[in-house]
């Protein structure tokens, strides 16, 4: 079976939504079980008392990257059928900066606020509600941001082409960088006063 399975036509696209629920459950479980339902645990990354976000986030990215590259090597995944986030440089940077501010204020990101809501955190629910307003405001003011939204388009660009190296080599450096970060995070965490939350 060559992935993605849905695009290969081996499974009817009608099953896609069922897979969506199952994959979402795994996603939600992993986030919640790692402690992403607690805003104070998430935000701990920025004050150095809990690096769970960095650890989970980078481990997940590496595991998924390695898995996809190995499957691609074995001919089990066709990269051209995967959705690769297109690069719109300006909107990615400006949007990222806006999200960063929202992250520091609200203490969640959309996925984690859902997890927090599921386990009864009211701040998570309020954050999630706030997102609806934010999305609504953006949609209504879209004509103002339309130029920025479409500017700096570079297509589905892969980061390894930016450095001019192979995807495998990039992933190798990513693994080294992530392990370095994990070690560093452990050192910092030891020296910072524990905060009970």
């Amino acid at each position: 079976m060559i992935g993605s399975i849905i695009s290969s036509g081996m499974v009817s696209p009608a099953w896609d939504n069922l897979f969506a629920v199952i994959l979402g459950m795994g996603f939600g479980f992993a986030l919640e079980a790692s402690g992403f339902s607690s805003s104070r645990k998430i935000i701990g990354t920025f004050f150095g008392y809990d690096f769970v976000v960095v650890k989970v986030f980078f481990t997940a990215a590496i595991v998924a990257s390695l898995g996809l590259l190995y499957f691609s090597y074995l001919g089990l995944v066709d990269f051209s059928t995967l959705y690769i986030q297109p690069t719109f440089l300006t909107s990615a940077i400006v949007g990222g900066i806006i999200m960063g501010i929202g992250f520091a204020m609200g203490g969640f990101c959309p996925g984690t606020s859902l997890c927090a809501t599921a386990v009864g955190r009211i701040d998570g629910l309020v954050f999630f509600g706030g997102m609806f307003i934010g999305v609504f405001l953006f949609s209504e003011s879209f004509p103002i941001f339309e130029n920025m939204y479409y500017s700096g388009s570079q297509g589905a660009k892969m980061i390894n082409t930016v450095f001019g190296i192979s995807p495998e080599l990039f992933t190798f450096f990513l693994v080294l960088a992530a392990i370095g970060m994990f070690v560093g995070a452990g050192r910092i965490q030891k020296n910072i006063k524990k905060i009970e939350y």
Binding site: G95, M99, M131, I133, G134, F138
Partner: peptide, 12 residues
Amino acid sequence: GGLIFGFGSQLA
């Protein structure tokens, strides 16, 4: 925070 995050997520 949710409002700002929601706004930014659409832009990005």
